[in-house]
């Protein structure tokens, strides 16, 4: 069996290193906790965000249950804004699955955009908890699979620390002012990402979905967003992925220019076209729909979609967003099986 030729961990690391591998890995840089995994431990979704052991257990369970080829923390997108001083709502009163959101803004008007990054950022909010969770997860499954973490991109983070409407309008009216804020946020993100690296993360995904071409023009992406992504990627030494969802065909080349080792796109991207544009050697991760296919599709639809992704030229089979927790085990297994059977 060629699958025994290397562990999932070796396969992903070789992929990042540009070495030849037998098949695309099937992993993600975004949250992939499942309700099956939570059930195994008797954990509530609302509780796993604020306990390092629970977070690490839940993150490792997707590999243990389905053979998914990574472990990734956190599951929410609020760690960075929280460390900067925003309050977070984890919806502890809700039985269903709701992801935490930001409750209070840091910047309430255009005049308050000149923020200072608090000192001791790595000891604020849940950054210490993340450090611990990465360590625990790495100890648990790190010998077999890669350990990943993610941070937001500066623009998406800016959309959390201030009103998104205002940010979007200012990015058009006063790009210099927005640029200054993004520069500071990029510094904060570098500090946090480096901390994750120190804690043992093998790769980090920067999620800049706020700057998708569904929202911002490719021109604004290039002039206002890209420079700060480049700043971040130039400062990080571990393996990096830039994820942007939505319409990304027009910015795929810019995404690669960011200096990220790999780019990640979702189901709205025409991957075959992107592959042609960026050439054979660039790392392109994607791009199945984690809800409409993986959760609500049939196993046949899952297999068909996954095969299509690989035929279109993805370097790794990877979801367009967080894996939605209620994914049926049969669908998860079908995905893993389809990837393992695939040969270039």
């Amino acid at each position: 069996m060629p699958d025994d030729a290397m562990t999932p961990r070796e396969r992903v690391l070789k992929l990042f290193a540009g070495e030849k591998i037998d098949r695309p890995p099937c992993f993600s840089g975004m949250g992939n906790v499942t309700t099956e995994g939570l059930k195994k431990f008797g954990y509530k979704f609302a509780a796993v965000h604020s306990d390092a052991k629970m977070m690490a257990d839940a993150a490792a369970s997707t590999y243990k249950l389905f053979g998914f080829e990574c472990g990734v923390v956190p599951f929410d997108l609020c760690v960075e804004a929280e460390a900067l001083g925003c309050a977070v709502n984890v919806y502890s009163h809700v039985e269903d699955i709701l992801y935490p959101t930001i409750k209070t803004k840091l910047v309430n008007s255009e005049d308050e955009m000149d923020i200072a990054i608090p000192s001791g950022l790595t000891e604020r909010g849940r950054v210490p908890l993340m450090r611990e969770a990465i360590g625990l997860m790495k100890k648990d499954i790190g010998g077999e699979v890669v350990a990943g973490a993610h941070v937001l991109g500066p623009f998406t983070l800016a959309g959390q620390v201030m009103e998104l409407n205002t940010l979007l309008k200012l990015s058009f009216k006063k790009p210099d002012k927005v640029g200054k804020l993004l520069d500071k946020l990029a510094d904060a993100l570098i500090i946090i990402a480096k901390e994750y690296e120190k804690a043992g993360a093998d790769y980090i995904t920067v999620r800049e979905m706020g700057a998708t071409s569904d929202v911002l023009s490719p021109r604004v992406f290039k002039t206002l967003i890209l420079p700060y992504l480049q700043k971040i990627f130039s400062k990080l030494e571990l393996n990096t992925v830039l994820h942007i969802c939505g319409k990304t065909n027009d910015i795929a080349v810019f995404m690669l220019d960011s200096g990220a080792k790999a780019i990640s796109v979702d189901q709205k991207n025409d991957v075959a076209e992107t592959r042609k544009k960026i050439g054979d050697s660039a790392l392109l991760f994607g791009n199945y729909d984690p809800y409409n296919v993986l959760v609500s599709g049939t196993t046949d639809q899952v297999r068909e979609t996954i095969k299509q992704c690989m035929n279109n030229g993805v370097s790794a089979v990877w979801p367009g967003c967080d894996i939605w927790p209620t994914v049926p085990p049969a669908n998860f297994n079908a995905m893993m099986d389809e990837v393992k059977q695939y040969r270039r």
Binding site: K169, F172, V215
Partner: peptide
């Protein structure tokens, strides 16, 4: 036609 994006749309709405 992707000549306008969300920032422009918000300003037009204003």
């Amino acid at each position: 036609a992707q000549e306008y994006f969300v920032p422009e749309l918000l300003m037009c709405a204003d």
